[in-house]
């Protein structure tokens, strides 16, 4: 596989076209694929996603994409970026449409956004929100510590005090805007929809 090849995992959900165009725009070669061989031998994987966690995990399990991703990470030392639902799927579990297990690549849980104050917030959380990133996070290199990115989500990943590095954002509550754990990365926001800042994050990931 070519050096600049980026496998975008196609499990039937999400806007693959935009992710592929962004990857191409940055000078890499997007390969949208559900083929287990392509996924398990990839050096760079992107797991996009829009939709229901439950439905997504069912598809990923039944098609054994979870195993192929695991193989790429362990045997191949691939790097992985989960976007939006794709980031949530990296977690341990979600409460969306009932409880379901996630890929468990990070330890965090996913729950519905709730307001911690008396002030009601609108759900989904839609629009550009300020993200405060741990300065050591590689994917935020070259960006200001507080930059804005585009979000659209009703569920969010809870922050856990573990070995992962976090970027956080607020909407009713504080939640994980981005996560980094070894070669596994995730963004709750859409880098492919966040104009210059988003493309920078994507570029940082692809250049790792």
């Amino acid at each position: 596989m070519a050096d600049r090849a980026v496998v975008i995992v196609d499990y039937g959900m999400g806007n693959l076209w935009s992710v592929a165009s962004a990857v191409k725009h940055l000078g890499f070669e997007p390969i949208v694929s559900s083929d287990l061989e392509s996924i398990s031998t990839a050096d760079t994987l992107i797991l996009p996603g829009v939709g229901s966690f439950n439905r997504a995990m069912q598809t990923i399990r039944s098609s054994e994409i979870d195993k192929a991703i695991g193989e790429a990470l362990h045997a191949n030392e691939a790097k992985l970026l989960g976007i939006c639902l794709g980031m949530q799927l990296l977690g341990r579990s979600s409460m969306e449409d009932g409880f379901s297990d996630g890929l468990g690549l990070v330890d965090n849980e996913v729950k519905k956004i709730t307001s911690v104050s008396d002030q009601q917030v609108k759900i989904p959380n839609i629009g550009f929100r300020e993200v405060q990133a741990d300065e050591e996070m590689k994917i935020f290199g070259g960006l200001e510590t507080r930059s804005q990115f585009y979000f659209v989500h009703s569920f969010c990943m809870q922050i856990l005090d573990d070995r992962s590095k976090y970027a956080i954002a607020h909407h009713g509550q504080t939640f994980v805007a981005a996560i980094e754990s070894g070669r596994v990365f995730g963004t709750q926001f859409h880098p492919e929809k966040s104009q210059k800042n988003g493309l920078k994050v994507l570029q940082n990931f692809l250049n790792l």
Binding site: G14, N15, L16, W17, S18, S21, A22, H25, V50, Y150, V152, H190, E192, K193, S194, Q195, G198, L199
Partner: peptide, 30 residues
Amino acid sequence: TLDCFAPIAAGGGVRSVDHARLLLRSGADK
């Protein structure tokens, strides 16, 4: 939407899940 890195909603005459899926696979996010 080829080089448009902003969110896109599309619609008009959506009458089936397949129709919506086609839009979502052609650059639409919503």
